[in-house]
């Protein structure tokens, strides 16, 4: 396990590279879900406002 984490001496470059990519995945996952949630909420408000008029 220690050997694996050491990445043949390249740990300081390999793991940050994987961490940055994981961050890109996370940003997309969270961002896309939030965009859809907000768009659905905004559409609901518009529908409700239209009914009130």
């Amino acid at each position: 396990m220690r050997e694996f984490l050491d990445m043949g001496g390249y740990a300081a470059f390999v793991w940050p590279a994987y961490a940055v990519t994981a961050a890109a995945f996370l940003y997309n996952w969270v961002g896309a879900r939030r965009a859809l949630r907000e768009a659905r909420a905004a559409a609901r408000r518009r529908l409700a406002a239209g009914e009130g008029a």
Binding site: N28, W29, A32, R33, A35, L36, E38, A39, R40, A42, A43, R46, L47, G50
Partner: peptide, 16 residues
């Protein structure tokens, strides 16, 4: 991710 964001973008462009 495109398919999820696409749903949001479509909703934004549709009115009533």
């Amino acid at each position: 991710m495109l398919l999820v964001r696409l749903q949001a973008e479509i909703l934004r462009r549709e009115r009533a």
